[in-house]
Design a protein around this nucleic acid. Structure first.
Lengths: 177, 177
DNA sequence: ACAACTATATATAAAAC
DNA sequence: TGTTTTATATATAGTTG
């Protein structure tokens, strides 16, 4: 990861892989020592190198054995509880995100419908619309009609004779639904 | 070991030590994963953080236990592996959803901008419309509806079952935006 | 295949938020 | 107290002997 950046995947080249393993093992063990000294914690690393009967371990003394034993002595419950908590957390988070996506999708559909409508005014092609877009458009149109009707009512109340009101409403508007 | 070089000895400052532990633990676990993937070896690290009942371990599933010990309770292993898989799955899903939200948000912004633009052109505040303009609008809406109906017919002929056509028409129409 | 060397990617201490 | 940013030390990929 230095001269070239290296992808995180199994190194097929035998020589390279072994060289990398050697170098990184050294590095790892050094880091384990550092964290343990700097922070005063029990830490331990084990790396199985192919061909080596005994894995590389730090710390090299029997402290390692004690650390491992401690780990194994953790009850199964303790170990799995942490995982469970983590899982529950992730699930909750996922649920939230899902809701968010749904909401965004809705907003989106409405905005698209609106855009389509406006485009409709300027003569866009309905043959291109998908079923969902059509439905959204229908909704928008309906809303538009409500607005128009309301406006007309207001006007007809305002102007006593209201002659124009009866005319335009007819056939096309309400029937197809 | 970066802004300042740090001596390899116990860090007395509480805050610093804890911060260092957190950061280095992350780093360590990452490196364990890397060596294990790059070189295809079994590797495992355990770090006991004060205050945490359970040590930080990589790999996070009980493969760690397999690496550490010879115990082979297959049932237990299987069970935990499932949880681990599930967890990994959830994590991936969360990532995807997060991306989706971002994307939707972007789409949304664009659409909003578009809507604003169109609105600017057509100045469509209905309370402002004159009777004549209303009539024009009604006609336009009428045309829109014809176009939509035509398109729906085409689609319902195209799709044998035509399930969508019947569904959304009624109730949704009144839903305002 | 290994150790030493270098150029670069990473890790991370400290600062900023 | 935890995350993000920044400057620097460290780790290490590719190279050389």
């Amino acid at each position: 990861m230095t001269r070239n950046k290296v992808k995180l995947e199994y190194i097929n080249n035998d020589t390279k892989r072994r060289s990398t393993l050697r170098k990184r093992t050294r590095g790892m063990l050094k880091k384990v020592q550092e964290i343990s000294v700097l922070c005063g914690v029990d830490a331990c690393a084990i790396i199985y190198s192919p061909g080596e009967a005994v894995p590389q371990v730090w710390p090299q003394n029997l402290d390692a054995a004690r650390i491992l034993t401690d780990f194994n002595n953790l009850t199964e419950l303790e170990r799995t509880r942490k995982m469970t908590n983590h899982l529950a957390f992730m699930q909750a988070r996922c649920a939230t995100l899902r809701d968010k996506v749904v909401k965004k999708e809705n907003d989106n559909t409405k905005l698209e419908a609106q855009a389509i409508l406006y485009e409709g005014f300027s003569g866009s092609d309905f043959a291109e619309l998908s079923p969902n877009e059509l439905l959204a458009t229908v909704n928008t149109v309906d809303n538009l009609i409500s607005n128009v009707v309301e406006r007309m009512k207001a006007l007809s109340a305002q102007a006593q004779n209201g002659g124009f009101v009866g005319s335009g409403m007819g056939g096309g508007v309400t029937e197809p639904f």
